[in-house]
Amino acid sequence: MDKEEKKFSSAEPISMSDSDLNFAKEIGKVAGTDLNSCLTCMSCSGGCPMYSYMDYGPHGIMRLAVLGLKKEALTSTTIWRCAGCHACAAVCPMAINIAGVMDYLREECLKGKYPIGDKPIFEFHRAFLLSVRFHGRSSKVELMGLHKLFTIGSGPKAWMQDAFLGVKMILMRKLHLLPSRLMSSGISQVRKIVVGEWRDR
C-alpha cells in the first residue's frame, strides 16, 4: 500500500458548480453533529493513524461536506480506509463526531450506488456481516476465508497474505476454527437486523 498524495494540496481550483449545499445539514441530522462548526484546525488529520494512506484525510472530508461536494466525498478512499478508531472524534475541539460522519458517508455511498473507493475493505465488511448473518456472531477464521474468496481477483500476493501466520494461530488454538453460535431463534432475529444496501454490491 503506497502513501497517497493529498488531493487538496494540488493547485487546481475546486469546481463548485454542482455542489449540494444541504449535504452538511443532511449529514448532521443522522450523525448528530453540526459540521459547519468545523474550524479546519486539522487536529483530526494530525491524530489519524491512516492519514498518509488517504486521499483527502478526515479534515478534507469535513471541508468537502461543508462545501457540498457530495460526489468527491462519497467516491474518496478516505471514507473506506478510516479504521473507526475515533481518535478524530476524541480530539475534535468542536466535538464533531467525525468517525460517525464517515459511517454515514459509507452508508450514503452504498445507497447512492457510487463507485466504492476501496474495494478490498468493502469486501471485508461484507464478509464480516455475512459471517454475522450465518452465526449471529463473527468468526475470525471464516471471515478471513470469505474475504480471500471475495478478493480472489487481486492476485497471488493477496491469496498468500498472512496464510502462514493464520494457519499457525489456528494450530496454536489461539483462534478457534469453529465459530460460536446463537440459538436458532436468536439467529433469525439477527438476520432481520443485518440487512442493507451492502448486500447488493
Partner: peptide, 22 residues
C-alpha cells in the same frame, strides 16, 4: 444469555441502523 455480535467494525460502518439494533 444468547448475546449477539455488537455490530462493531463493520456493522455500524455500512449501516447506522445495524449498530443500534445489535
Amino acid at each position: 444469555e444468547d448475546w449477539n455480535c455488537c455490530g462493531s467494525s463493520s456493522g455500524h460502518a455500512v449501516n447506522h441502523e445495524i449498530g443500534t439494533a445489535m
